[in-house]
């Protein structure tokens, strides 16, 4: 598998509310710009972390729909804000979500037959 870059964005503020509903997470930094600004993120809602990981998984699924993810080890090293444009970079079993060229999620995936 060669390296692949998949663009994603702009990140939708309204989608953040839908992610939060699915996650049963009412952390206001994801839901209101006022809360995000008060927390030091500027007037931009903060994307829930699982959504950022989902972007990477979706890029891998688009690269090869037949591969089965059997394990993930993901580190969340930065934040994604509404209206951001991202790149999901996949390279074999490694994937990185980039914001302005800087990683916000780095992950190692294992593929194969589930146990």
């Amino acid at each position: 598998m060669t390296r692949s870059d998949t663009p994603f964005g702009p990140v939708s503020g309204p989608d953040m509310a839908d992610w939060c509903a699915l996650l049963n997470d009412d952390n206001q930094i994801h839901l209101t710009r006022e809360a995000a600004e008060a927390a030091g993120f500027g007037p931009h809602r903060v994307n829930p972390g699982p959504a950022n990981l989902a972007y990477l998984m979706s890029a891998l699924m688009a690269d090869d729909p037949d591969r089965e993810i059997t394990a993930v080890d993901a580190r969340f090293v930065g934040n994604v804000l509404e209206d951001d444009h991202l790149v999901a970079r996949t390279d074999g079993d490694e994937a990185t979500l980039l914001r302005d060229g800087a990683p916000v999620v780095t992950a190692t995936f294992t593929f194969g037959e589930p146990e």
């Binding site: 699915l22 699982p50 998984m57 993930v72």
Partner: peptide, 22 residues
């Protein structure tokens, strides 16, 4: 919301391991 390909069988998007957990 995540830009994934459409579902072709009963398998769900793998992020549901996280979404379903929380």
């Amino acid at each position: 919301m995540s830009g994934a390909p459409a579902r072709t069988d009963a398998r769900a998007h793998p992020i549901f391991a996280f979404v379903g957990a929380l």
